[in-house]
Every structure is written in C-alpha cells, then in structure tokens.
C-alpha cells in the first residue's frame, strides 16, 4: 500500500497537523518509505494468533472511590497559554 499527497493531506488533517501544500509530496515519500518498510509483515502467517496488547498478565487494578485530587483551578490553569478567569479559552467554536 502507498499513499498519495491527497491522502497525506487527509491524515495530517485527522492528526491536526498543518502541512504546507508544497511539503506534501516529500512527506508522502517519507511516509511511503516507512509503510514500505513495515509492509513485510503482510507476508507473515498470523492465522489464529491473538493480538498482544500488553505484556502485563494481570487484571486491571481498581482504586477506591475517594476524592484525592483536583481542587485547585489555579494549579490547573498555571500553564495555560490563554485563559480568562478560571476558564481555558480557545477560538470560538460553532457547533
């Protein structure tokens, strides 16, 4: 499988990364180089093999339902690039 610049543009959009139109062909080449590299997996027989998503063989640990965190808007907002009072702010969204 290989991707064309239009597909690269779509992926970039999905990933919310601005890519200049002029950069698209070069980026498509890079992406194709990597896709070509990983392509070799297509030839392996994986019939009946279950995907391994974690090497930790235990059940999800559960914590108690107690409030231990949060409670300071100031701490939370201290790193915000833009804020008004205790809100994060972003360019206006039209739903």
């Amino acid at each position: 499988m290989s991707v064309d610049p239009a597909t690269v543009k779509k992926i970039a959009r999905l990933a919310r990364i601005r890519v200049d139109e002029a950069e698209l062909p070069a980026l498509a080449d890079e992406v194709n180089g990597i896709l070509h590299f990983v392509e070799q997996l297509q030839s392996v027989d994986v019939e009946g093999v279950a995907p391994l998503t974690s090497v930790v063989h235990r059940s999800l640990p559960l914590r108690d339902d107690v409030v231990t965190d949060g409670g300071s808007a100031e701490t939370l907002l201290a790193n915000a690039p833009d804020r008004i009072e205790c809100f994060f702010t972003v360019p206006k969204v039209v739903e």
């Binding site: 965190d69 949060g70 907002l77």
Partner: peptide
C-alpha cells in the same frame, strides 16, 4: 482520577491533571 464529581462547583476546581 481522584477528582470530585459534585455538580455546580466553581469552573475547573474539580479537575485532576489526569
């Protein structure tokens, strides 16, 4: 996360960094 869930709290006052 361990942040509280009470309704109507001050904005961003019940938020963990998680």
């Amino acid at each position: 996360s361990g942040a509280a869930t009470t309704f109507g709290a001050e904005p961003n006052s019940q938020v963990s960094t998680v």
